[in-house]
Write a protein that binds this DNA or RNA. Structure first.
Length: 859
RNA sequence: GCCGAAGUGGCGGAAUUGGUAGACGCGCUAGAUUCAGGAUCUAGUGGGAGCUAUUCCCGUGGGAGUUCGAAUCUCCCCUUCGGCACCA
């Protein structure tokens, strides 16, 4: 299918940068052959297949599964390279690693492709999957492919439909008519989380509002738990947690009732500042407030209010909020202040949101900047009730609201209270009077999951004229998405026109009924796939609790920051729902989260429109998967953005060539030494100092790489440590060194260094290291070898360099035996001419000695 | 406006607990090899000064401070990126 052309580029174009396949004396580094051979071997042996039931040390390593858009991009390469290092490393550390891969296969692009090119979404999707699977395999990723899943498979979404029905039974799903975000381009509803700056997250179209019936997941029922859970996610980036906390947006305050003058009803407001109750001089309600128009009836303001609301409704959502000027109109009605009984005019104001709180706000212009601006514009009174402690405010001369703390004034019996205490006191007072109560509000809205599109999981509901919305019977699941459909060029879903699909009978009463033709938001599928991998082979139930509990939460989850809210919040919610439905025990889906940075080119995110896309295929073809993996891991630590550099890739390739030659050029001697086993290693005392130094470096490197991978995921420094070891080793294997150093002493030490390098690099550069490992005579595959242990004796040094400072400035370096006493070091330091010079004629006031590191003399 | 992350050579980045700033790589310079280019190997590579020495000064966005010692800690400021944002 796609992109076959241009695949056989390397080798043919002489002088092209990157054609670095250099003939070494003995063996060429033919990465293509090596990589294919190793991949074939891994697959044949089932090296990465996991029997989850037999695992004694479970470790679940997971990367966010891709949308099968057609081909992988560098972001995928980075994501999966990082994940693969962790998976391979943990495997070598003795863990039973679950490392699956699958496809987030429902979604709009498939449907749009169908409309544009006349290919069925299913065909388009599965062909893309086939191609991308082959691309991932070409990268040498250690997945257990037997667990592969695609969310558009009825065997997957049938379970989701089951969850939906069970959530309905629990009251966690409901339907309502509501004002929703509508994208005309995508012809569908968007969740709040999918609207960015009033625009569609996918296509950037201005979002409109529509009144529509839709299904909602009651995520707000878990708002408090989702928020509290953030504090327990110790291994998540602070950034992601902050974003989630902001999104949930908890605020604590009070609801207060203001009786409407001349009516029985009251207007209820939500406020976080009940302490400013006596400063209320007017009320502001949203233009969407159900009483907005009603309040103006018979007041003479009715027409003006109607005009205002109509004008407001025509404004696009994107333009409505932000830095627009505050505007409003008097409704003609008044409420009565719950304590003073004063008459307070009610205004409609363009900045009051219906979705938040009660859609009505008590306005305190002295202590809220928005109310202040509004009051100034419409000449409304400003009443100061919080007096700051350290300055005097003249209410008539105020230029902005005072939003800080202070002492209550003009507040009747509450005068003199600290404003924080007053919050409690006033709420208590209102509660006693039945005029208000404390209240917690969240910004989080329920998750609208209905989508008016075809390529998604059908919502398992039937509308009966007698019984209303009735869930499909569980034994009738799955509700399969029909394959034979005609696509509308504008993108409207074909399902509402497809009689064979929507015509059905009521599961309750048997009457003729209509099936729901909306499909579920694709984020529903990605909210639980990580659990399904665990029992992918079980077609009798969605989740086998015993198996799932063994593996969840995922030990390490890796993906892009762009999912900080959407996918990660939904998955957390779904995990809690599945727990409450009895499917699993975990409270949270992901224990550790690593959010990798973007891959940039020329300082910008790669995109077709900018023309700065680097295609993974081209790179893998030219340099090999090992090189591409190595570069992408070496160029930056994982959480940071990474600047793609063709030169850098060549550097990575050169390093691999160097390792290749280090082994193949000396293969005879190394093999011989390997056969002789450890007996060849001389004891430390008699070892040549250069060899002793190499051994030290080898073991120091093992320790450093282990720390860098295990504790910090800083693969860049891990790789540079191995490079240092290679730099130390390679001069010793030059002809003159080999002659100079005693051969029977050299080779065992060199072999030890080389084997350490291969083991340490193997999670990052799995193919070449495995090939060389075999070449050295090992019969066990490298991927199954245990991770090396650093020998701390071998790594320790006998002499150390101690920096001598005078008043904090470096004035000399001395060699001293490790662990030397301060006295001895001082004596040595005093012999240094440069140190003597700087001490001349000055009295020593103080000496600070940090063992084996620094001697600082203060004069 | 609020919240978060970051700012280190020509570039990507390192410095793990306050202890030699610039590891490693890229690039660059010189030399070796080569018909040449490429590749490879060797040496050098923060800036400046200089009695050329195991030398001195400056240097981690800017300014102050704590400390024997600060890229690292504290305060103020600047810049960049990301998120939220008329949330009452």
């Amino acid at each position: 299918m796609q992109q076959e052309a241009g695949w056989s580029a390397c080798g043919s174009v002489a002088g092209q940068p990157g054609c670095l396949k250099i003939q070494s004396m003995n063996m060429r580094y033919d990465f293509k052959e090596i990589e294919q051979k190793q991949q074939h071997f891994w697959e044949k042996e089932g090296l990465f297949r996991l029997d989850d039931r037999k695992a004694s040390r479970p470790y679940y390593c997971l990367e966010m599964f891709p949308y099968p858009s057609g081909r992988i991009h560098m972001g995928h390469v980075r994501n999966y390279s990082i994940g693969d290092v962790i998976a391979r490393f943990k495997r070598m550390r003795g863990f039973d690693v679950l490392h699956p891969m699958g496809w987030d296969a429902f979604g709009l692009p498939a449907e749009n492709a169908a409309i544009k090119h006349g290919i069925h979404p299913a065909k388009w999707t599965y062909e893309n999957i086939d191609y991308m699977r082959q691309q991932l395999k070409r990268m040498g990723l250690s997945y257990d492919w037997s667990r592969e899943l695609a969310t558009c498979d009825p065997d997957y979404y049938r379970w989701e439909q089951l969850f939906f029905i069970e959530m309905m039974e629990k009251g966690l799903v409901y339907t309502k008519k509501s004002r929703v975000n509508w994208c005309e381009q995508c012809q569908t509803v968007l969740a709040n989380e999918q609207v960015e700056d009033g625009k569609c997250w996918r296509c950037d179209t201005d979002v409109q509002e529509r009144e529509l019936d839709g299904w909602f997941f009651r995520i707000t029922a878990y708002a408090e738990e989702l928020l509290a859970g953030c504090d327990k996610l110790k291994n998540w980036p602070e950034k992601v947690l902050t974003m989630q906390r902001n999104w949930i947006g908890k605020s604590t305050g009070a609801e207060i009732k203001f009786p409407l003058k001349g009516r029985g009803e009251a207007l209820t407001v939500f406020t976080t500042r009940p302490d400013t109750l006596f400063g209320v001089t007017f009320m502001s309600i949203s233009p969407e407030h159900p009483m907005a128009l009603e309040l103006s009836r018979g007041t003479g303001q009715e027409e003006a209010v109607r005009d205002f609301i109509e004008r407001w409704e025509k404004t696009l959502k994107a333009e409505r909020y932000g830095e627009t000027e505050k505007e409003g109109i008097f409704t003609g009605s008044y409420v009565l202040h719950p304590v003073t009984g004063d008459e307070v005019p009610v205004f409609i104001a363009n900045f009051v949101l219906m979705e938040y709180g009660t859609g009505a706000v008590m306005a305190v212009p002295a202590h809220d900047q928005r109310d202040f601006e509004f009051a100034r514009k419409y000449g409304l009174p400003i009443r100061l009730v919080i007096a700051p402690r350290d300055k005097k405010i003249d209410p008539d001369a105020m230029e902005e609201a005072w939003e800080g703390p202070g002492i209550l004034v003009n507040s009747g019996e509450f005068n003199g209270l600290d404003n924080e205490e007053a919050k409690k006191a006033i709420v208590e007072f209102l509660e006693q009077q039945g005029k208000g109560s404390s209240k917690v509000t969240y910004r989080l809205r329920d998750w609208g999951i209905s989508r008016q599109r075809y390529w998604g999981a059908p919502i398992p509901v039937i509308y009966c004229p007698n019984c209303g919305a009735v869930p499909v019977r569980k034994e009738d699941l799955p509700v399969k998405l029909p394959a034979e459909v005609e696509f509308d060029p504008k993108g409207r879903s074909p399902l509402p026109e497809l009689r064979s699909f929507y015509e059905t009978t009521c599961p309750k009463c048997g009457a003729a009924a209509r099936r729901e033709t909306d499909t579920m938001d694709t984020f529903v599928e990605s909210s639980w796939y990580f659990a399904r991998y665990i029992c992918r082979d079980d077609d009798t139930m969605p989740l086998d609790r015993e198996r799932v509990d063994r593996w969840l939460p995922v030990d390490q989850y890796i993906g892009g920051i762009e999912h900080a809210i959407l996918h990660l919040l939904y998955s957390r919610f779904f995990t809690k729902v599945l727990r409450d439905l009895g499917y699993l025990s975990a409270d949270e889906p992901f224990d550790r989260l690593l959010t990798q940075g973007m891959v940039l080119k020329d300082g910008a995110k790669m995109s077709k429109s900018k023309g700065n896309v680097v295609d993974p295929n081209t790179m893998i073809e030219r340099y090999g998967a090992d090189t591409v993996r190595l570069f992408i891991l070496f160029a930056a630590p994982p959480e940071r953005d990474l600047e793609w550099s063709d030169r850098g890739v060549e550097g990575a390739h050169r390093f691999l060539l160097k390792i290749w030659r280090l082994v193949t050029d000396n293969i005879e001697a190394l093999r011989k030494s390997g056969n002789a086993s450890n007996s060849g290693m001389q004891n430390a005392a008699s070892m040549h100092p250069e060899l002793k130094r190499l051994r030290q470096k080898t073991h120091q490197t093992i320790a450093k790489v282990t720390r860098d991978i295990e504790e910090r995921y800083h693969f860049n420094t891990a790789i540079s440590a191995v490079m240092e070891l290679a730099n130390e080793l390679s001069p010793l294997l030059k002809e003159d060194s080999i002659e100079r150093l005693p051969g029977e002493g050299l080779w065992p030490v060199a072999l030890e260094a080389i084997e350490a390098m291969l083991l340490l690099l193997s999670p990052m550069v799995p193919h070449m290291t495995a090939e060389l490992w075999k070449m050295l005579g090992h019969s066990k595959p490298l991927a199954l070898e245990p991770w090396p242990e650093a020998d701390s004796d071998a790594a320790s040094v006998e002499t150390v360099t101690i920096v001598v400072q005078i008043k904090g400035k470096v004035r000399g370096r001395i060699q001293a035996p490790a662990g030397a006493s301060q006295e001895d070091v001082e004596k040595l330091a005093m012999q240094e001419p440069n140190v003597q010079r700087h001490l001349e004629g000055k009295g020593v006031r103080k000496v600070i000695y940090i063992k084996d590191k620094i001697l600082n003399i203060v004069v």
